[in-house]
Nucleic acid binder design. Structure first.
Lengths: 121, 121
DNA sequence: CAGATCTACAACCATATAGTTGTAGGTTAG
DNA sequence: CTAACCTACAACTATATGGTTGTAGATCTG
């Protein structure tokens, strides 16, 4: 069976791609931790890392596209705030694996406990 | 302040890089879901996707390096099994964000409830 | 107003990634 | 034994990614 991954439930999968990809870089995870208070600007964040402002700006853009942070202009600076709702959404995605896993267990214990309904009579 | 990300807690961050990167591709997430039972070989997995065997093999290798699946030889085929422990580890990594978030809230409510200890006398 | 600061974005480079085909060795089936 | 099958890996291509520098517009400050 060949499943067309480009069409089936594409939206959710696209979001998952973006979120996990954004989380897959240590600098971006660090930015997420530092931006919980929503009081740091892109340039103040940039001062924390041994890379150019533009590089940090790109990382923030990746987080923004994934919905993991929001930016709000405050005068000339752009304040970055971690969006916990999207972090929770990521947890939900991992919980789905848990659900699939549990379904497997249930199927297994069913076979063990059902009084031989499986045998074709 | 510049933090040297290449040294500080490198091992954990390396693992997080690998795990989230492995999760960031829909084909690999699908492989994870299908491999919960641990009864599918690499080639049987490969038949599910519109790509070559070698491509699927590479995806399994990425999951393996991240610790998200284990492979066990069974005759000429290699059976793939999702390692839920690593999925749980990923959940733990997201929970850390939750912890940082909660710490922020506590700090905030502390400021509100502490009877003006903050004012320099 | 003039200069400094913050942001956005383009252009560029090096490397990583996702895919391909091909080759080779171990294992099973006829 | 031979043929088919499963896996591993190398070599290659195209594109994505993470980094750089440079430029330009908007905003604040002296």
């Amino acid at each position: 069976m060949v499943v067309d991954l480009t069409q089936e439930q594409g939206a959710d999968e696209d979001r998952a791609d973006l979120v996990f990809n954004a989380l897959s870089h240590r600098t971006r995870r660090d930015i997420l931790r530092r931006s919980m208070d929503g009081e740091l600007s892109v340039s103040s964040l940039a001062r924390s890392y041994a890379m150019s402002f533009a590089a940090v700006q790109k990382h923030v853009a990746v987080l923004d596209r994934a919905g993991l942070v929001t930016k709000s202009r405050h005068g000339r600076e752009q304040l970055v705030r971690t969006d916990m709702a999207t972090v929770h959404a990521a947890q939900g995605l991992l919980d789905e694996f848990e659900t699939v896993w549990r379904a497997r267990i249930d199927r297994f214990t069913n076979v063990l406990t059902t009084p031989s309904e499986g045998a074709t009579p």
